[in-house]
């Protein structure tokens, strides 16, 4: 011990560092799930856990089997290839039990997700600055969501013509 008389304090600090490393290894053994790394850099058990989750989407074929009238309208419009649950959300529960009524989406928020003007979107894609175009009104005040286009209504925002003509110009 006399050999380490003047360096004994460094052994102490080494001890503290080693204790830290041992603590870290213990925490690692405790926290890292057993199945981690079995197939790759992730927890293998997550595959079975995710597979066991209940299915939340019904699929558009199921929707169409009951809502044939909507399908008829939708197929003639620009939204023909937009799946029902893309706008209405997952509806497996409603499909299983039609008495569970889904909440209708707020079109003022929903439509803007795709149609809010954005310089990264292709020019031909219909897009408007919603704050100017609809001034907070829900889009379905004037448009039919299942077959976009103007409803036969008087409630038409002042600049909608401008916005539509802009879209038409962009198409050219």
């Amino acid at each position: 011990m006399n050999r380490f008389k003047d360096s004994e304090h460094l052994l102490r600090v080494t001890g503290v560092f080693l204790a830290g490393i041992v603590l870290f290894l213990c925490l690692r053994a405790w926290f890292v799930p057993k199945s981690f790394g079995q197939y790759g850099h992730y927890r293998a058990d997550s595959i079975t856990e995710i597979a066991a989750l209940p299915i939340r989407h019904a699929g558009h074929e199921v929707c169409e089997s009951c809502h044939a009238d909507v399908l008829e309208v939708k197929h003639t419009g620009k939204h023909a290839n937009v799946n029902c649950e893309a706008c209405h959300g997952p509806l497996a529960k409603h499909a299983e039990d039609p008495s569970i009524k889904p909440v209708l989406p707020d079109t003022a928020v929903l439509c803007a997700r795709c149609h809010e003007a954005n310089s990264a979107k292709p020019k031909w894609f219909p897009q408007v600055v919603t704050a100017e175009h609809s001034q907070g009104l829900p889009c379905n005040t004037c448009h039919q969501p299942h077959k976009p286009g103007l409803k036969d209504t008087d409630a038409k925002p002042a600049d909608s013509k401008t916005a539509d003509s802009k879209t038409a110009e962009a198409k050219k």
């Binding site: 008389k5 360096s7 304090h9 503290v16």
Partner: peptide
Amino acid sequence: TLGSQNISPGA
């Protein structure tokens, strides 16, 4: 100090 009071010239 980690319990060490050794401040001898050698230390």
